[in-house]
Design a protein around this nucleic acid. Structure first.
Lengths: 201, 201
DNA sequence: TTGCCTGTTGGACGATCGTACAACAACGGC
DNA sequence: GCCGTTGTTGTACGATCGTCCAACAGGCAA
């Protein structure tokens, strides 16, 4: 009889992906402080040395994880918009309220995100990643707002305000879920969109 | 001739305060990852052993720093409200827009705050501190909103929405100051208050 | 089956972490 | 001036950190 293989080989991309997802789980569970090479390797079920084989140090792994998680969120938002149909206002609402439902409204995702924020101060490359990603987020929001008839002159401020409100609601919804519900967050956000799209001036 | 004293004694409270402020500076500069006992002690200009003398480990020091920074923010908000005079609407606006001016709108303060958030997941005591502090923040906001004539039934949701918007604006204002100005943040917040206090429909 | 390639392991290495503690020295009381 | 108190120092200790690399072994070609 053959002894069970002590490990399996994987496709390089699959192994990289596995390490990235393990890194995200560790960041969510233990924060930036606990995201050590050994903890990530254990979470992924591999030996510590493998991290160095696929990434130039743990910093590069964290940066890759940031990029991956950002892509996951963007995909979830796009899917929500696509599922909303062609009506501009429905698409806008879908984009906004998707942040209050899985997989975005997830305490683990917030914990991962906070770990990234905690690195912005000390890591210029992470800071740049953050700026680019937020600029992209606001750009997509501006496009959705424009389709709802918002004047070009008001677009920038409107996108900033909606982004801030959604971020704040998402943050507190994840940090203390008992305080208010996802449904209430959606109501608040929709009311804000109403005030923006029908100026009572 | 006498040799210069190699160190000075301090009042226990003053030394504790000095360590707390040094901890806040280190958290702002290096994030939660870099907040080691030695880094904090060096920042405070004392030897590493002194931290253990005043606090039961570095975790207790971080918790104390959280409490201290929270108190500082609350004091700044109260001062802004007090300086706004007796008019309810002016007091509400002062409370809200104070978050976009020094000393609250400070990237270093945000970095400190993010370091605390990054500990919420792993540290139940920090999570409890966060819940209590946010409940207090919303309670003060509800009182200010009530004085502006808001119905009791709408108070809770209104306070949640204002808190979320202000937090989001504060977050992004500190993370990427080049994106929009403090004045614009104030305009956005005031417009939101308008929509809340004069329901159009 | 045999042998090569290389993904993978597991431990060594120096640095740094949090903590504990004996020795030192500043300061108030005598 | 001297002494006791105690705030403060500096270091030792074990644990854990990131990194590195020689050795092992799974999987494929021949």
């Amino acid at each position: 009889m053959k002894p069970a293989p002590s490990f399996r080989r994987s496709e390089p991309d699959a192994r990289r992906q596995s390490l990235i997802e393990a890194c995200a789980r560790v960041l969510a569970k233990a924060g930036a402080t606990g995201a050590s090479v050994r903890a990530i390797a254990t979470e992924a079920g591999v030996s510590p040395g493998l991290v160095g084989h696929y990434f130039d140090g743990v910093d590069a792994l964290v940066a890759a994880t940031y990029h991956h998680v950002d892509g996951k969120v963007a995909a979830a938002l796009d899917a929500a918009v696509l599922a909303a149909g062609p009506a501009p206002r429905a698409r806008l609402e879908a984009f906004v309220t998707a942040s209050f439902a899985p997989p975005i409204a997830d305490p683990q995702l917030l914990a991962t995100w906070i770990a990234f924020w905690s690195l912005v101060t000390a890591r210029p490359d992470i800071a740049r990643q953050h700026d680019e990603q937020y600029a992209g987020y606001r750009a997509r929001l501006e496009a959705l707002l424009r389709n709802c008839g918002l004047a070009d002159s008001a677009l920038r401020i409107a996108a900033i305000s909606v982004t801030a409100l959604v971020d704040g609601l998402w943050l507190e919804l994840c940090l203390s879920p008992a305080c208010f519900s996802a449904k209430e967050a959606g109501t608040i956000a929709r009311r804000h969109l109403d005030a923006l799209t029908s100026p009572a001036g």
